[in-house]
Design a protein around this nucleic acid. Structure first.
Lengths: 121, 121
DNA sequence: TTCGTTGTTCGTCGAATATCGAACAAGCTA
DNA sequence: TAGCTTGTTCGATATTCGACGAACAACGAA
């Protein structure tokens, strides 16, 4: 729960970003975050152990795909859509379009009751 | 040198495609093939052993990114641009744009003298 | 202070990946 | 037939990845 590293926009690496986005579960996470809303980790439901989820969120963060904010014991995550679009124009849009079309990472959901109006408890 | 397997367009998997496109050398190969021209194996110059190059070309082919054609003892490869665009609209374009901007996979070249006018020997 | 919640880190496992050199196979060519 | 070229496949090795449970650390609440 220490300070997380976030690469600067200009440090984003295309191969690393592609690798981060090549796992179905991580694609599912990106889809859940695609509306731009900030989500608490507690809202995220994925069919893996919490340590595994933590690992995947770390991969996304290290690659610069997401940004993590800490508040007390709780963490919130957002998609760095603007940074990604600046560096790799069209990539996220293409990924989301393709992922939605075939429901890649469909095992990832939001907790029931959570909506995009900011229901972070 | 036996019959290579090529997945059908509808079999292309987004995660597998993303994974295939997450290696700098493979991105370099895709860039070289981006003009749509068919290239002979022998034209491709990459800073790895030939067995390693063969491996990477196989990963691309298995993922459905490229198509391999055999003619005698020689192989020719093309980018399956149309299939990829049909299945994952905008993905290849976004990748190529970003890869060109930062010269990802710049270690991959065409053999001197080779051009896009079909100089496959 | 003592819990309970939350997320990270550790240790481990098996599977996959990247790389090389060497051996091999298939097809030309002399 | 013998050799050459071309690309694949086979070990061998080192690294990385994805997954899990368990232990740990930080913080808020009782």
């Amino acid at each position: 729960m220490r300070h997380a590293h976030h690469p600067a926009t200009e440090e984003l690496s295309l191969p690393e970003t592609m690798a981060a986005l090549s796992d179905p579960l991580r694609i599912g996470l990106v889809r859940v975050l695609a509306d731009g809303a900030e989500r608490g980790w507690g809202e995220l439901r994925a069919p893996v152990a919490k340590s595994t989820l933590s690992h995947h969120l770390r991969v996304l963060r290290d690659a610069g795909v997401t940004r993590t904010r800490q508040e007390g014991t709780r963490c919130f995550v957002t998609l760095r859509r603007q940074d990604l679009d600046e560096r790799f124009p069209g990539l996220v849009e293409a990924l989301l379009g393709a992922a939605d079309a075939e429901d890649v990472g469909g095992g990832v959901h939001l907790a029931p009751g959570a909506d995009s109006t900011g229901a972070c408890r």
